[in-house]
C-alpha cells in the first residue's frame, strides 16, 4: 500500500474552534475504546477484557485491576498491563502528522495521539498511519489520530495528569485582536492543559510568527503552573529537533529561510498549594 497523497486532502488552514462541529467525542476518558487506535497494544485476547474495563467507570477499573493482579499472584499479566497503557504524548493540531511519525520510532513504547479539527487532514494522517503500518510491520503501532476540538473537549479524552508531553507546533496565529480567544494558548486554556499534564510534563511550543511566540511566552510565563525550561536544557532534549524539523510547517519555514521560535515549559506543582501546606 502506498502512502496517501497530500494533494487529495487539502483543506482551508482555518477552522473555527467555537462552533458546534459534528464531532464524535466520548462522554469521559473512561468511555473511549483505544483498541481501535492502537490494536497492537490492545491484543485480541484481551480486547474483550480491556473494552469492558474501559467502558466501566474509573473506580471499577482500579478495582478489577487490583483484583486481577492479586489473583495472578506476582505473575504479572502482561497483556492486561499493556491494555492499561494510556496515551502519554498529545500533539494538538497535529496537521499532516510529521511529528507523530518521527517520534513513533523514537518512543516505540509510548502511545502518541495527534489531534486535528480539519476532516480531510485527519483522514490523510489516518491513511498515512495505516499505510506505514502495512509497509513496516511491527512499527508505527503506537501512533494514532483523532478528529477533535482540543480547545473544547480535551478533558473528555484524558484523565488528570495522564499526559507527559503536549505539542503546540506552528499553531494558527489568529492575528486579529478580536480573534485572540481562538488562539490555542490562552490563560483560560492553560488551566486545562495543566490538568491533563502531569507534574514534570512538558509543553512544547514553536512558531514562525514572532508576535504569536511572544503571546505564548507571555501567557505561559504568567501561568503559575508552568515554568520555562532554559535553552541549554531544551537543546539536550531529543524531541526538540523533531519539534523544529519534522513537521510539514517546520520544513516549509526551513525552505523559506524563515525564523523559528521555540519555547518549552514544564508543569510544576501549584505554588499556592505549597504555600498553604507550609
Amino acid at each position: 500500500m502506498s502512502l496517501p497523497q497530500k494533494r487529495y486532502f487539502r483543506q482551508r488552514a482555518h477552522a473555527n474552534p467555537f462552533s458546534d462541529h459534528h464531532l464524535d467525542y466520548p462522554k469521559s476518558p473512561a468511555h473511549i475504546d483505544w483498541s481501535s487506535h492502537y490494536p497492537a497494544f490492545f491484543t485480541s485476547q484481551t480486547t474483550e477484557e480491556s473494552t469492558s474495563l474501559l467502558s466501566s467507570t474509573r473506580e471499577d477499573t482500579k478495582q478489577s485491576l487490583s483484583i486481577s493482579t492479586k489473583s495472578s499472584n506476582l505473575l504479572i499479566d502482561e497483556s492486561l498491563i499493556k491494555s492499561q497503557r494510556k496515551v502519554e504524548f498529545a500533539d494538538l493540531g497535529c496537521g499532516y502528522g510529521g511529528l507523530l511519525v518521527a517520534l513513533s520510532t523514537l518512543y516505540p513504547d509510548t502511545l502518541l495521539l495527534g489531534m486535528e479539527i480539519r476532516v480531510k487532514v485527519e483522514e490523510y494522517v489516518r491513511e498515512k498511519i495505516h499505510a506505514l503500518r502495512l509497509q513496516h510491520p511491527g512499527q508505527y503501532q503506537n501512533i494514532s489520530i483523532i478528529r477533535m476540538n482540543a480547545m473544547k473537549f480535551l478533558p473528555n479524552f484524558f484523565e488528570k495528569g495522564q499526559l507527559s508531553k503536549m505539542f503546540f507546533l506552528f499553531p494558527d496565529p489568529h492575528f486579529k485582536t478580536r480573534k485572540h480567544k481562538a488562539r490555542i494558548i490562552t490563560t483560560q486554556l492553560l488551566a486545562e492543559y495543566a490538568y491533563v499534564l502531569r507534574v514534570g510534563g512538558i509543553i512544547y511550543t514553536i512558531t514562525d510568527v514572532k508576535e504569536l511566540h511572544e503571546w505564548m511566552v507571555k501567557h505561559l510565563n504568567e501561568h503559575p503552573l508552568f515554568k520555562r525550561i532554559p535553552e541549554e536544557e531544551t537543546n539536550k532534549d531529543p524531541v526538540v529537533f523533531h519539534v523544529s524539523q519534522s513537521t510539514e510547517e517546520g520544513k516549509k519555514v526551513e525552505r523559506n529561510n524563515g525564523e523559528k521560535f521555540l519555547a518549552c515549559y514544564v508543569r510544576i506543582e501549584d505554588p499556592y498549594r505549597m504555600q498553604e501546606n507550609s
Binding site: P155, A191, Y195, H223, P224, L225, D270, Y272
Partner: peptide, 8 residues
C-alpha cells in the same frame, strides 16, 4: 487559585 483544576 482557579487556574488549578481539581476535577471534571
Amino acid at each position: 487559585n482557579a487556574y488549578n483544576i481539581e476535577s471534571f
